[in-house]
Structures are given as C-alpha cells and as structure tokens.
C-alpha cells in the first residue's frame, strides 16, 4: 500500500507520462480513502491550467479593463 508521499509522486508523474494499469489501480485505492490526496490530484490539473493561462497572457488581461468590484 502506497503512502501519501508516493501517491503524490505518482500524481505528479501522471502530468508527464501515462501511468500503468498497476499504478492507476493503486492510485484509485488510495484516493478512495484519502481526501488530502484527492484534493492534491485535482490541484495538479488546476496548477496546469493556471500555468497555461499564465503563459498565454492571462495576467495582462486582468490589467487591461478595470472591472473592479465585478
């Protein structure tokens, strides 16, 4: 049974390569019982989309129009 450190390592690696069936199975087992790693898992996706938005100029677009207070 993998611990949280190993599971987060797998989740990080899944951003670089496709995980094996065995790896995916141990992920599933762990995520079913661990909310911390479940959140971490979602955050890997968020981190990527945030970074993509950053390199595609999202920060500049927040400065352009001054829509403070929505």
């Amino acid at each position: 049974m993998k611990n949280c450190r190993e599971i987060t390592r797998l989740l990080s690696e899944s951003q670089e390569r496709e995980l094996s069936l065995k790896e995916r199975t141990s992920l599933k087992l762990h995520l079913a019982i661990c909310s911390g790693c479940r959140n971490f898992s979602k955050q890997m996706g968020s981190l990527r989309s945030i970074t993509r938005a950053y390199t595609r100029g999202a920060p500049e677009r927040t400065g352009d129009n001054n829509k403070s207070g929505k």
Binding site: G36, N39, F40, Q43, S46, S49, I50, T62
Partner: peptide, 11 residues
C-alpha cells in the same frame, strides 16, 4: 491539501 474553491476564476 484542502479543497480549492473555484480555481478557474482566480485567473
């Protein structure tokens, strides 16, 4: 790690 509320709108 905690739950992130609405990460899409942060950007």
């Amino acid at each position: 790690p905690a739950h992130w509320e609405d990460p899409e709108s942060a950007i």
